[in-house]
């Protein structure tokens, strides 16, 4: 392998390592501590769940722009049902159900009707966002309307010796495990990548493309709903736009992960590194008193650099 091809595959990883070393040197007492790192895993847990499940649709070469709106919708659905006096478990189940239904709608539009994912999910993003306003009446639901058992979940943790592993982190790890098994260890996952490689070839090879894509969008909808509930639990409230910011960051994480995989495919472990990169960057920059707007510039620059380093190999082959 040439230097360029090494850089293509490992550029992002090197950048990641350089960032960790940089923060570790500048924040020697606080950055590489178990407590801080566990804290970061909690901070990125919602983004992680959305990004992991986004990886499923992106493996097929599809997109889902509606994940943020679905997350917001799931949060307000649960909170509205809390207000209506539903038991916590039932309200959560209903919110997750709403996510699956929303994902199913995306799946039908993309896979059955054949609308481009960008267009279809741009449309449903607006629809779900609007529904979140309708359900919540545009208000933030908070205070006594949110049961303590629900908001307490995000503050709970598994005590392991001196360490507290946050409950939200455990949820993200569970979702990671499920998505990893589905994508890497099952025929279903391999077929998704086959669709992503060449949808016509996959179809001709007898892959039931329509059904597989439908199911993939359901995964993403369910993931978005889980993340929306995690968010609502963490802020002990729900408003109709609170999950919206998750969408672009999730796509960015999958892209960052793609630059680390051999074939440039979305792999869920690569996505995990993308999520951790963004999370550690936020954490380190805050601790170093860096302006929040500089952080935005850095994140964008890093994504472009990561993708650019992935193109190096292409240039050297020309």
């Amino acid at each position: 392998m040439t230097l360029a091809s090494h850089l293509r595959r490992y550029g992002t990883l090197l950048g990641f390592a350089a960032m960790v070393v940089f923060f570790a040197l500048n924040l020697p007492d606080t950055f590489l501590t178990a407590r801080n790192l566990l804290n970061v895993t909690q901070q990125v847990s919602m983004l992680a769940v959305v990004a992991f499940t986004m990886t499923v649709v992106m493996a097929m070469g599809d997109f889902d722009l509606s994940v943020g709106a679905m997350a917001s919708l799931a949060g307000v659905v649960a909170a509205t049902l809390f207000v209506a006096g539903w038991p916590v478990g039932l309200a959560i189940a209903a919110a997750l159900g709403a996510g699956v239904l929303a994902g199913l709608l995306n799946g039908v539009l993309v896979s059955v009707l054949g609308i481009l994912p960008f267009v279809a999910t741009l449309g449903t993003m607006t629809v779900f966002g609007g529904l979140a306003f309708v359900v919540s009446d545009g208000r933030t639901i908070f205070g006594r309307d949110i049961p303590a058992s629900f908001s307490g979940f995000a503050r709970s943790a598994l005590e392991a010796g001196d360490l507290r592993i946050p409950a939200l982190t455990l949820v993200a790890v569970a979702v990671l495990a499920v998505i990893w098994v589905v994508l890497e260890q099952t025929p279903y996952g391999r077929r998704l990548y086959a669709i992503g490689g060449n949808i016509e070839a996959a179809r001709l090879a007898g892959t039931r493309v329509v059904k597989l894509r439908l199911l993939a969008f359901c995964f993403t909808g369910l993931g978005a709903a889980i993340a929306g509930l995690m968010y609502a639990s963490r802020v002990a409230s729900a408003n109709p736009t609170q999950g919206d910011g998750l969408m672009l960051d999730a796509i960015a994480c999958v892209f960052l992960g793609m630059t680390m995989s051999e074939e440039g495919e979305p792999r869920v472990l690569g996505t995990l590194l993308g999520v951790l990169l963004l999370g550690l960057l936020d954490n380190g920059l805050t601790q170093m008193n860096v302006d929040s707007y500089i952080r935005e510039v850095l994140v964008g620059t890093i994504i472009i650099l990561a993708v650019a380093s992935g193109r190096l190999g292409v240039f050297s082959r020309r």
Partner: peptide
């Protein structure tokens, strides 16, 4: 982003 406010308080 309200959840990010929590994260930044933690940081």
């Amino acid at each position: 982003d309200i959840a990010a406010v929590i994260s930044r308080i933690e940081d």
